[in-house]
Simulated scan of single mutants.
Amino acid sequence: MNKAFAAILIIAAAMGIATVATAATAEDKLTYKAAQESAATEYKIAREKCNSFAANAKEICVTEAEAARTRTTAEAEAQYKNTPSARASASTAIANSEYDVAKTKCDNKAGNDKDVCIKEAKAANVSAKADAKADKKVVAARTDARNDKQDANYKVAIEKCDALAGASKDSCVASAKALYGK
């Protein structure tokens, strides 16, 4: 009887978790689509405002509008996918769009000032990309460490179950498997 009751509880918990996960995914997808639409709308508005400028000021305005759109869509995609790779890709895309803005602003300068400006923009871009790559590696290392700890704790729990017999042991093993996702 205890085995059947434990199995029913585990199945009910799993179904509840699956339902919550599905609901969150649908909500995330709606949020993602809304962010994309918002970014497109805001870009159009900002782009229209740029028409009142001329020459390099207009280029800067357009590039800034594109960068804002890139930031919004990249962050929304990273949140929607919720993976280290997606977050790193978003950071890289944002860094590249900010680099484009900085380069466009450098066009107002001439000679060595322009060269220095471009080098500073490139250095900031390389730095931001390196940070994104490092963040991705840190997250991966933490995930690996968490999984290793969980595996070790699962082995301890199973070892404790070996001291039991019969239905008690089966219940203990089922509990350990449910607790550690095995």
Rank of each mutant, 00 (worst) to 15 (best):
V20S: 02
E37M: 09
N51H: 05
A78H: 14
A39K: 05
T70E: 11
N51Q: 06
K29F: 07
I60S: 10
A24L: 10
A68Y: 02
Q36V: 12
T83S: 15
A74S: 15
T72M: 03
K58H: 09
E77N: 10
T63E: 11
A78S: 09
C50K: 04
T22K: 13
A55Q: 15
A23R: 04
C61Q: 04
E75P: 06
T41D: 11
T73N: 05
A74W: 03
K49T: 09
N82T: 03
T41Q: 12
A24M: 07
T25V: 04
N56A: 08
A65H: 04
A65V: 08
K44C: 07
N56E: 05
A68F: 00
E59G: 01
R69Q: 13
S52Y: 06
A46M: 04
A34M: 06
E27C: 01
A21M: 06
A26E: 13
A68T: 00
I45K: 13
R69L: 08
R47S: 15
A78W: 12
A67F: 05
Q36C: 11
T70F: 01
T41Y: 14
Q79S: 14
K58A: 06
T31E: 10
T31F: 01
S52N: 08
T63I: 01
K29M: 07
V20E: 04
E48T: 09
E77Y: 10
A34C: 02
T25I: 07
A40R: 15
T41P: 00
T22G: 09
D28C: 02
K33L: 15
A34W: 00
E42I: 04
Y43F: 12
A35G: 01
E64G: 06
T63D: 03
C50Y: 03
T31L: 06
A39W: 08
T83Y: 08
T25D: 05
A54L: 12
C61Y: 02
K33W: 14
K33T: 10
A21N: 06
A40I: 05
A55H: 15
T31W: 00
T72Y: 01
E77H: 05
T70A: 14
C61H: 02
